[in-house]
Simulated scan of single mutants.
Amino acid sequence: MRRINNSMLKKFVDSNEFYLLIVIIITAAILTFLKPDFLDLNNLYGMLVSNSFLAIMAVGVLTVLISGGIDISFTAVATVAQYIMATTIINHGGNMFLAFLIAAVVGIALGSINAILVYLLKVPSIIITIATLNVFYGILVFITGGKWIYGFPVWFMERNLFKFPGPQGKMIVISLPFAILVIAVTLTWIILKFTTLGRKIYAVGGNIEAARRVGINIFLIQLFVYGYMGFLAGIASVVQANMMLTVAPNALIGRELEVLAAVVLGGASLAGGTGTVLGTVLGFGLIVIVQNGLTLLGISSYWHKVFIGIVIVLSISITAYRRKLSERKGAIINVEE
């Protein structure tokens, strides 16, 4: 048992997640020194909840990246799903379950369109999803005229799910965005870690031709990952609407790089075959922590985008370097044998 524990510990210490965790701790310590309010529990919880919809979409992007694809259209998918959901429940009534159901169905349908186009056209998925990003968003703005939506029903405005007494007489509140985030992260972790489907997703991303030869249905895997991305985009759109209580066609468009940065920072490769839910959560955490710290320090939000761009470049560079080292080590072992 001790040998197994030592092996697991060594594996974690050598992983991308460990170094990312160290960076998060150091960054948080520096920000706390500069701004003691940063470490306040209300600030940390608020920071997590206010960005929860981005984290939900991030685990969807992770699934697509592991499969060897890439989806840039998820913010447009979320916007369309959000608009249809909001229009339906405001005009015809309903409940929170129906709101999530409508957005999820729309998201799955649009995600499936991406999967079908990627499979049939044999064009790099980034090209397809950039195209569908513009098509989905363009059609929405053309039909709606870019009109904002207000006037959600009272039941939709409820954000707190559970309240119970905490230390020092304070109430601990579990909000809807936080609960949905936990469910989305847990579900994705279970799929990728413990199911045959998850192993097939990794196999397709690692070597699509080898996966095809062993009998894996590539189309069904792509249909699942892009559909699952659409599903989570739809769910995230409801969470965002629940927080903002308005629907603006341009509210989510432009947030793609934040989500993608979190995933690649967490160790997912744009070439496919690698990535973990823990890494994505830590990558998302680092980006949100730095953005919040920059805000507390009064630094312009324009620098947030600079930071995200640098993160993407560094992450891709480190991933490429580590892959090259791995290939070199494999070549040396083969020569020795």
Rank of each mutant, 00 (worst) to 15 (best):
I24D: 04
L223Y: 15
G205L: 06
R255G: 00
T274Y: 03
H304F: 11
L187F: 15
R323E: 02
I221V: 13
V214S: 12
L41K: 10
T79E: 10
G93K: 03
I221S: 02
I190R: 06
A331M: 01
A268F: 06
T295D: 06
I289M: 00
M57C: 15
G107V: 13
V49G: 03
L120M: 12
V80F: 07
A131L: 13
I253H: 03
A103G: 13
R255S: 14
A55S: 15
M85E: 00
A268L: 04
Y119V: 13
K147P: 11
I113Q: 05
W303N: 12
R199D: 01
T87S: 15
A109R: 06
V61R: 06
T195M: 14
G330T: 05
I22F: 13
V13A: 09
S237M: 11
M243K: 11
L245Y: 14
T88S: 14
A241P: 00
S52N: 11
M244A: 14
A268D: 00
G138W: 05
L34C: 07
I333V: 11
I139T: 03
I26M: 05
K10Y: 08
V335G: 01
F178R: 06
M57I: 14
Y302H: 11
G151D: 09
G293K: 09
H92P: 07
K193N: 13
I90W: 09
L297D: 01
A78G: 13
A262G: 15
I316A: 04
S125C: 12
A248F: 06
G206L: 06
T88V: 10
F142G: 00
Q168R: 12
L286R: 04
L270G: 00
N95A: 09
L21R: 04
N242E: 02
L41P: 05
V13K: 07
V173H: 03
M85A: 12
V239F: 10
S67C: 13
V288L: 08
L44G: 02
I183T: 06
A236C: 11
H304Q: 15
S52M: 11
G279T: 03
A203Y: 02
G138N: 05
I90N: 09
F18I: 11
V259S: 00
A248R: 13
M57W: 02
S237P: 09
N207L: 07
L120S: 11
F100L: 10
A103E: 08
S237D: 05
T280H: 01
I84T: 03
S315N: 01
I4S: 08
G93S: 09
Y228K: 05
V49L: 06
T186N: 08
G283M: 07
W155L: 13
A261Y: 07
I116M: 03
I22Q: 04
V118L: 14
V263Y: 03
L220H: 07
D40V: 12
R322E: 03
Y150N: 08
V105M: 03
G46K: 09
L120Y: 13
S301L: 10
I208V: 14
L223G: 07
W303Y: 15
I149Q: 08
N134I: 12
L54T: 05
F156T: 07
L101F: 14
S326P: 01
G46A: 08
I72Y: 12
I108Q: 02
N42R: 10
P36I: 05
I216K: 10
Y83K: 12
F97S: 03
I113V: 15
I102P: 10
M1G: 14
I253F: 13
I208G: 02
I116V: 15
G111N: 14
L48N: 05
V13T: 04
Y19W: 15
A99D: 06
V80E: 01
G266W: 04
